[in-house]
Amino acid sequence: MSALRPALILAGLIALWQAVVWATGAPPYILPGPAAAARAWIANGELIARHGALTLAEILLGLVVGVTFGGASAVVIAYFRPVRRWLLPVLVISQAIPVFALAPVLVLWIGYGMASKVVMASLIIFFPVAASFYDGLRRTEPGWLDLAETMNASRWSTLRQVRIPAALPSLASGLRVAVAVAPIGAVVGEWVGSSAGLGHLMLHANARLQVDLMFAALATLALIALTLYFAVDQALRRALPWIPETSFEPERGRS
């Protein structure tokens, strides 16, 4: 049943989509049905694959850059007191600027190519990763730190062997958010200015009233985002098997 559930949910969503089309009687150039979108998807398979591959590459690169910088910043902020005092407020202030508003500036500075989208995605990813990891680093069980101190561990060793591993579950939460928002960064970057990518394809299909193609591209984007999310989620579960997970329901049959 649990293996079938995603397929059932998908089928249900498609049925709902079709139901809305039938109920509203919307013309295909406003809201194409799932069948029309599927036809457009097959007819433009090569085109969608080409643009989709580029967007996927932007998302992945953005993830690598954003997670690296976010994770490293959290460790540096946690370890160096002066950095913490000066950089932490800067980090919070930087979040007051909506990253989307930066997109045109980024395109102006870095150009229409892939780089501006990667930077855009990294910027969006950076904060959830840095914030959640830093939060985890701060919340180390005090008893572990006392123990490390009585064992004459250096500050660096305590950070590396106790604080960082203990904060990995928090980092994992940040990563899950990052993976969910990374596609937004890439696509917004493509909307503002680009010559390729799914965002570009959607914008142009929309302008030419190829709404079925737009929906096909949208579905592809959703597919990429979902696949990435579940891949990362599974990888994290496998990498951190020691994180206790408790059930929301009362457990029976356990002593």
Partner: peptide, 9 residues
């Protein structure tokens, strides 16, 4: 200590 303070990882 009272808690075992074992590192779960």
């Amino acid at each position: 200590a009272q808690q075992d303070l074992l590192l779960p990882w």
